[in-house]
Design a protein around this nucleic acid. Structure first.
Lengths: 200, 200
DNA sequence: ACCTGAACACCGTTCAAGT
DNA sequence: ACCTGAACACCGTTCAAGT
């Protein structure tokens, strides 16, 4: 497949791809630079030609995961192009589903000391408001809902914190198995999302 | 103060206390057994008399943090002994405040691989339903609210996931600075909690 | 420009040995 | 029973050296 990659300048992409894979398999806490290098069949110091340090590799991997995440959210929006409220609900469900199926991404994107890892890619860092960033995608959906719902009393920011906070919290609790309920989580979640009491 | 502790069997408590302090100062990712031992003026292997491995120390520290957390929640409940709805709201605010002021506890309690660290203390593990555990405290508050609100259409479990998820998500986003809003977070949060649209 | 191997400081953990 | 010191395997990172 990628037979022209080794020793040819594709190592950087290879490290990111392999890193993502190992991170998924072994978990964030057992992730190591040396393992990634070994898995790519290069020496332990080879990654330093492409990344300043371990944190920069992690940042690059996080940027990749962020891209996948953003795509999942956008995909959900497409289901109801004309109904901002349904869009918001569908996106919330997609949010939870994404992290339930990729629990290690939660640690990668939200729990690591990303502060120091943020400088490498526009997907991370303070430019949350650029297109391609989940925050941007999510916030836009919230704004469309707000503009379309004259009876909504909450402001955009409150709505954003409320909606994101809710789906994020639910994702963490379910993906991490911190909340000990047996049975069908999807049902629980969608029953929350469907409740007319809330904005959904 | 604790002059009779070294070489006297108090090392275990000392390790937990010092571990909590170092975890707060240096963060979960830079936490190390050897540093804790050195800070307690014992050799690097001394902790192994009291804990099977590093994870068991972390579990003991997490149990301590869990206790503090539970006390914060219970304290909030006492403000409105007769109003389950106000209690729930007040507890939600306390939840967010606790983690905003102890951001490292979020990593400790919810992001670490606690699965493997759970066997040491009743505060963790599957006995979420025992008294002394925040889950128990929170769930009871939800039940009281539900029993007192005949118009509430959501079931207990949905309410639990909804309430816990919401305050947890908000805690993570604010404590981690993942949501880039300038200004007064407390105001945003309490405006969400005060919204009559939601059960609060 | 890109990669390697030796080296250093720091980990977690085990084990034989001391009191 | 409780603690120490040497030792081992594994880290991240630096540096001189190879192509």
């Amino acid at each position: 497949m990628q037979n022209q990659s080794y020793h040819h300048g594709d190592l950087k992409a290879e490290l990111i791809r392999m890193g993502l894979k190992l991170l998924d398999q072994e978990g964030y806490e057992r992730f190591s630079l040396r393992k990634v290098a070994k898995a790519c069949n290069v020496s332990q110091t080879a990654p330093y030609r492409h990344f300043k340090d371990k944190d920069q590799l992690i940042a690059a991997i996080a940027a990749e995961a962020t891209k996948e995440f953003d795509q999942s959210l956008k995909q959900a929006l497409e289901k109801f192009p004309d109904d901002p409220k349904k869009q918001l609900k569908e996106m919330g469900i997609a949010y939870v589903n994404f992290f339930v199926h990729n629990p290690e991404y939660l640690r990668l994107l939200f729990l690591s000391d990303i502060k120091s890892k943020m400088k490498i890619d526009p997907c991370l860092s303070e430019n949350h408001f650029l297109d391609g960033h989940p925050f941007h995608t999510f916030f836009n959906a919230v704004k469309r809902y707000k503009n379309n719902s004259p009876n909504e009393t909450m402001g955009e920011k409150e709505l954003m914190l409320y909606c994101w906070g809710l789906v994020h919290g639910i994702s963490v609790l379910i993906a991490n198995r911190d909340i000990p309920f047996e049975g069908d989580y999807a049902k629980l979640v969608s029953s929350i999302m469907d409740s007319e009491k809330f904005l959904w």
